[in-house]
Design a protein around this nucleic acid. Sequence first.
DNA 1: ATTTCGTTTGACCGTTTGGTCAAATCCGGG
DNA 2: CCCGGATTTGACCAAACGGTCAAACGAAAT
Lengths: 204, 204
Amino acid sequence: MNEAAPQTRIQKRNTRVILDAALEIFSQHGFRGATLDQIAQAAGLSKPNLLYYFPSKEAIHVALLSGLMDTWLDPLRRLDPEGDPVEEIVGYVRLKLQMARDFPRESRLFANEIVQGAPRILDQIEGPLKALVDEKAAVIGTWAEAGRIAPLNPHHLIFSIWATTQHYADFDAQVRGILPADAAPFEEAETFLADFFRRALSIR
Amino acid sequence: MNEAAPQTRIQKRNTRVILDAALEIFSQHGFRGATLDQIAQAAGLSKPNLLYYFPSKEAIHVALLSGLMDTWLDPLRRLDPEGDPVEEIVGYVRLKLQMARDFPRESRLFANEIVQGAPRILDQIEGPLKALVDEKAAVIGTWAEAGRIAPLNPHHLIFSIWATTQHYADFDAQVRGILPADAAPFEEAETFLADFFRRALSIR
DNA sequence: ATTTCGTTTGACCGTTTGGTCAAATCCGGG
DNA sequence: CCCGGATTTGACCAAACGGTCAAACGAAAT
């Protein structure tokens, strides 16, 4: 079997269906809390059929995580060293919040994994993720040194952006439990976070 | 059995030992990922002995969550309406960050629970937690209206404090994977967050 | 029509898991 | 020292779980 090149279109379709179902289940229950039967049912397939496309439960999980990592990092990659510093960062905040709104399952998948020590993706964190963050932190650092934004630790600034935006996906249950029933968390958050980061960053 | 008043001192000791062991295991693996055998071993007791003190695995989990909720909310309760607005809020940030540093297991326990939809504590969130947050948000709201801090949505300001501080406990694996090996995440975070919130809040 | 290869499944297996129970052990008060 | 209730445990159970396998099915090509 040629693993590098997935062949038939039915194979492509089923792996997609499986990964989507697995995302739904894993993000809701975590790796250990999810069962192959649940994933199989959500995918509309039988359990042995799942294991025809993926060798194990863990293989599905790993495939999900590494396949999603790129998408997840994309907004940060777009932070432009040539742009206006405050607008670039606030724009990144907005993009990240939109991702939390539009892809909450992906956010919770990572959250589940990292809260439990990131056993399956620690190497990806220490490798490509760290490299990208270091690169962009350096950009923000030069902005700070040039006096174009407030002098704040760039790495921790990035952490604060991740924390505040992903909060609305990962802790959705808490946010909605506290806000009034008719509130629109993500719309309110967009206004708040844009103001908030703009105030913290701009030099006056 | 009188449930309202735990009797013997051996009962008190063992329930404490069990809850501490359960905190360790649940916070590392989540509810579904933790096993009674793991908890029993961590507590130095046999599995049937655990179930002599608690009727079920879920009962241990619930006891932990509700017992910790009070402690967890204490810093917010101390936010003083009569104090200096910016200093009160920055002080709250500091306290919350210290809790993340000193009680990461508690933080991760809640994180695990809420990420998965808070099925076991949704009523506590919508009840006492919401009440306290609404009360303190109102205080912050009057500060904002009086022009003593920047005009920011109080509820979302509180969310941003929770998100940024708990991030260092819940996503510790990621933070340490990205920061240099010799970094001191919590010390850096204290400086960063104090500056950050002070800049965002203060009127200049 | 037959071959061939990709796909699907019912039945099954060994292990793990939460929980039970009767019997044994411990321990303080009389 | 003895008694009765509190405590502890080895043995056990049923269900759930991840995973296997041989057999059946499907469809396209010859």
